[in-house]
Amino acid sequence: MTRWPRIRAGLRGAPPAAPPDEATAAALAERMAAAAQTRLGRSLAVCFLDAGSCNGCELEARMLAGAVHDLERYGITLVATPRHADVLLVSGPVTRAMQEPLLRAHEAMAEPKWVVALGDCAIDAGVFKGGYGVLGGVDAAVPVDLSIRGCPPTPGQILDALRALLQANATA
């Protein structure tokens, strides 16, 4: 309270305000955007894609949506199309037949996008390495950002990985 008269006096004698520095404004805007991302970006839309799995990973991924693990409480939602997804969660060794559908799904996603390889097969084709119908791990078709080990990974492990991605997204 006691400072206010002094400030007012200082303002009265101050030179007219110069227009704000453009570079500073741009930097601030960037920081604002980052802060907004931290506060508002705590959600992740995940699209699941089976590129050749034995359906073991699907069984465990399906448990995520259930009442026990309930991934929606972390702001993670399963979406039905790659067009709505931030993350493509890919299971299985990529079969030669599924290479093109996987590429098309990846292309359909909006930037920024992440690919998560789910399970040992998705990492390096697992036990199916060398099968004539197998192209390889997911990185043989599209760039992979995060891998989740396990055959199949437990719902807890999948959830931990997705939450780590969420955290990285928020603090990036």
Binding site: G52, A97, Y132
Partner: peptide
Amino acid sequence: GWLHKGTLAL
């Protein structure tokens, strides 16, 4: 046939 890995050959 989308998931065919060649399991019988393996």
